[in-house]
Every structure is written in C-alpha cells, then in structure tokens.
Write a protein that binds this DNA or RNA. Structure first.
Lengths: 181, 181
DNA sequence: AACAACTTTCAGTATTTCCTGAAAGTTCTG
DNA sequence: CAGAACTTTCAGGAAATACTGAAAGTTGTT
C-alpha cells in the first residue's frame, strides 16, 4: 500500500542525490585534468543551479570552510567561468556560472593556452636556443626533438586560437557536430 | 687568453643543462595536466635520448628510487608512450619513447578519451537517467544542463576519435598546419 | 640445486597540495 | 564614529599523493 505517486520530498531527495553525484564526479574529473577538486565542485554546483549562490550557500552545500570557498570562487572568477552578481539593497556577493557549454569550452581553451601552452613554448625555445651552437650527435638529437615539440605546440596554439574565438561560439557547435557526424 | 673554441666538456655541460631544464619543465607541465611529475620527467628523458635506457640509467639521471622508476615506466608503457626493448644476450630491460610528436599526440588523445571522457559520459548519463521522471523546475534545469554537457562530451569524443585515428598521423600534421595557417 | 641477474611489490615515510578557522581588513549604515 | 555585515588573508594542520628501500619474486645459468 505505498502511495501511488512519489511525495514531493521523495522527489527532492532523488534530485539532491543526482546533483550530489554530479558535483562529486565533476570534482574527480577536475583532478584528472589538473584542476583542484573543490574548484571543480564549486563550478559544478553553480552550473546546475539557476539562482546565483552566496559564499555561505556554497559552504553549506559542499561542507567546506569559508576560506576554501572564497579562494576557489576567486579562482573561478579569474578563469572567467563564474561571475559575481550583486543585488540591489544586499551587501552580500552572489555567484553564477557561465552555463553555455560552448562558451565554457572556449574560455577553458583560452585560459589553458595562456597559462600552460604559451609558457611551455617559451621554455622550449629557450632550450633550443641554448644548444644551437653545439654540434655533437646528442646535441643534434636533442635539438631535433625539441624543435618538433615546439612546432607542434605552436600549431596547437594556433589551431586552438581559431577554435576558441568567442564570436564563433555559435558556429563552433555546428562545425564540430558536423565533424563528429 | 681563453681557449678560442669551447672544450668538449664545456659543450657537454651546456647540453646537459638544457636537457635537465627540458626534463624539469616537462615535469611541471605534466602536473598542470594531471600527470604525475616523475612520470612526465621519465617521458621527457626518454624523448630526448636516442639509445634505449635501462631502469638504472633513469634512476641515476633523475635521482629517483628503483621502485619509483619502475612504477612510472610501467605506467608509461601502459599508456603506449614508451616501449620496452630487449637486447639479445642481455637480461636487462631497456626503454625507449615514441618520438614522433603526432603519434604521441594521437596516443594521448586516445588514452584520455578512454580513461576520462568516456567514463565521464557514462556518469552523466546515469545522472540524467535518475532525474528523468522528476518534473520540478529545479529538476528541469539540472536535466537541461547535464544533457548539454553530455552532448558536448559526446561530440568531443567523436571529433577526437577522428583526429586521433592512427592511420591519419601523416595527414593530421598537414591538415592542422593548414588550419593554423 | 644453488646462485646470479634482474623485476616487482608494498609498508612506511616524505612531500606536496589543499583546507580550516580565526583574525584582520573593508565597506556600509545609523 | 561605532558597530554591523561582509570579504580577505594566511599560519598551521589535515589529507592526498608520491617516493623509498628492502624484501620477495622471477628467470636464467652453471
């Protein structure tokens, strides 16, 4: 003799479970790609929440300290994945995530390029420079390999720039879906 | 009254410095992308070394323990980025890296797809499934967002599959270089 | 079978990375 | 200006991750 339809609280519970799983999983994924777990979790939480959240909301939902929430929110704002919202008449700051997945994708590409690919290219060039004058076989091999890597990264940098031009965030899904067939 | 040309040992020193810097830097890059530093360093070392190296060579060069060297070499072999070489008449195992940057790239894409993207898609689908029946506004929003992410990842998975087809590792550089202009 | 050459494992430890919480800082309000 | 509301910082502690080294395992040789 169970109720014919699930109660509201049962439904709310199920939803909460799914949300929690999503948040946890996004955190795990983050780690795999070199992003701190909490930052990824906050991002996940904001992505699936319609209303903007305060630092306290986030602290409560994820059970993390104020400092942790604060720092990671700043990071996310720094990446451009989250923006802060201020409501008239309220002193508290609220946060909301960019929800468009293609825009997210472009932002992430742009930032990764800037933070990791470009510096790596610079270092590679430094290495290449330093052995330029040398001409042992080992130096030759080193030079060849680092140059190949450098060229590769420059190509990647350039291709990614084109892919991530923000104006194209409407064209991109289209083009890639086509490629994906 | 310094020597007119640098001595061999001076040259060797310079090369060693450049190699060390490259290895260190590749390690740092690894961390940024969620790869353990030592694993990336071993990979770097093997990439810039022509002759295959033994575990002992690597231990010595990077000043790491046998266990560490061993485990990370196995990981690299598991990724397919390094293969082991056995020389006739020698019992020791040697290792060499795939040196072709485009092949490397394809391998990494394939493995990341398999290890991270595909499991993530599966989890997302699970989440979507669980809230399918629910119909509150919040459930609706959650569903919409997770579906968008899921679709995105499936597209990415598919595009990457095409990009990383091994047969194309000659076409790929060409195509991407064109795109990069 | 005994030994040598080499590989593998893993408990304990070191290192890195992340998080907490409380104190100090800032901005607003009456 | 005093106090409330909120944000920021960061020293010290906790947790996650990676590493060591030695012992056990494997394979080949005499």
């Amino acid at each position: 003799m169970s109720k014919p339809t699930p109660s509201q609280s049962e439904e709310a519970l199920k939803l909460q479970e799914a949300r929690d799983e999503f948040v946890a999983q996004w955190g795990t994924m983050g780690s795999a790609w070199g992003v701190n777990r909490t930052m990824a979790q906050i991002h996940a939480l904001l992505m699936i929440t319609t209303r903007p959240l305060s630092t306290d909301d986030i602290m409560e939902d994820l059970r993390i300290s104020r400092g942790n929430a604060h720092m990671n929110l700043r990071e996310l704002v720094g990446w451009g994945l989250v923006r802060s919202v201020i409501r008239k008449g309220e002193r508290k700051e609220f946060f909301e995530a960019e929800k468009d997945v293609w825009k997210m994708f472009c932002i992430i590409i742009r930032e990764r390029k800037r933070r990791e690919i470009q510096p790596a290219i610079a270092v590679l060039k430094g290495c290449i420079e330093r052995v330029n004058a040398l001409k042992s076989d080992e130096a030759e091999a080193f030079s060849t390999q680092t140059k190949a890597l450098c060229k590769f990264m420059e190509t990647a940098d350039s291709v990614l720039s084109r892919v991530a031009r923000s104006e194209e965030s409407t064209v991109l899904p289209w083009a890639l879906n086509y490629l994906a067939r």
